[in-house]
Amino acid sequence: MVTFDFMLPYYGDVRLMQDAVRSVLAQTDPDFRLVVIDDGKEPEVPGWFESLRDPRVTYLRNEQNLGITKNFQKCVYLSEADHVVIMGCDDLLHPHYLATVRGIIEANPGIGMVQPGVEVIDGEGKVAYGLADQTKRRLYAPQVDGRRVMGGEELATSVLRGNWLYFPSICWRGDALRKVNFRDDYSVIQDLALVVDLLEAGEQMVIDETETVFSYRRHAVSESSVQAFSGSRFTEAERYFNAVADRMDARGWTKAAKAARLHTASRLHAITMLPGALRRGNREGLRTLARHAFTSGRRAD
């Protein structure tokens, strides 16, 4: 049995998905399985996978659209390997991603999560660090010179203050991932929830900055996107932060609880969305965004 599973939940742009698949097949380390779970209906996709004729690739199409969270959960259920990557269907692995991550795991036996080196690319594939990613790196991400192991309250506090992780690039220890899986009640913040759940279960993470092995695609938010400025994602975020703050308090992780109640990065993000909601005349979105930005987090003191 192979020791690595690349699980690819797919919905959306066919060309970008094909590029993502090619980046997996181009790995210098051939010991992997790629499982694509198609949650869409694009007619040419099944034939394209059949034409690959690569025994390492398994392609499955859902009979009905499951949505993001259910499809992510299905990826976890169908994973089998010792280590699992749930990559984005428009992201790119560098050829030595697997070889690099395998080396990190061998140097840190039993590690639950590996966050390797990441660059951010735009819709055209060009390296581009916008304001959100610069803020992640400069204000929220820990300063790592080489590699660092983090876990427990230290890492929980860090990611609850501002989620600087690049979820699709993370390699998970399979048994830990399958034991926890994604929560049913979140559709936007499920990646952060999964990491915190694993930290509560005693898992640790290696953060590696020795080399870049993953390209994370960041698409510009469309001004025409209703959901982007409705504030609905922040309603979910506030519900999560309130709940996890209580759990952190119960665990005695008081710094993590305070970070959750303040959720500084999430509130700043809401502030940056306010002008777009105002231009669209979205009054309900404005109220939701303003409430999240300016009135949440007061319990922190």
Rank of each mutant, 00 (worst) to 15 (best):
E211W: 00
N181G: 08
D197I: 11
E200Q: 12
D208F: 04
E200R: 15
V180G: 05
L177F: 02
A176S: 04
M205L: 12
L199D: 03
Y186F: 14
F182R: 12
I189Y: 06
V195T: 13
K179E: 15
F182Q: 10
G202I: 15
K179R: 15
R178S: 08
A176P: 00
F182Y: 15
I207M: 09
V206K: 03
N181R: 13
L199G: 02
G202Q: 13
D191C: 03
D191M: 02
L194F: 10
G202N: 09
N181K: 12
P168T: 12
E209H: 11
D175F: 00
L194V: 07
F182G: 08
E209N: 14
Q204E: 15
F167S: 15
V196Y: 06
L198A: 05
V180W: 07
S169K: 06
R173G: 01
L192G: 01
L199R: 07
N181L: 13
L192Q: 13
F167A: 15
N181P: 10
I189V: 15
D208C: 03
E211L: 06
F167N: 13
L177D: 01
D208Y: 03
A201K: 14
L192V: 13
T210F: 04
L192D: 00
T210H: 01
N181W: 07
V180D: 07
L198E: 06
F167E: 14
Y186E: 00
D185S: 13
S187K: 13
Q204D: 15
I170K: 02
D185T: 08
V196W: 02
D185R: 12
E203I: 09
S187N: 09
E203Y: 00
G174K: 09
S187A: 11
K179L: 10
L192T: 09
L199I: 09
D197W: 11
D208L: 05
K179D: 11
I189A: 07
Y186M: 05
I207A: 05
P168A: 12
D208I: 08
N181E: 14
V180Q: 09
R183A: 13
V180K: 08
D175V: 06
T210V: 06
N181I: 14
S187R: 14
I189S: 07
D184T: 07
T210S: 14
V196Q: 01
W172R: 00
E209R: 15
F167P: 00
L199Q: 07
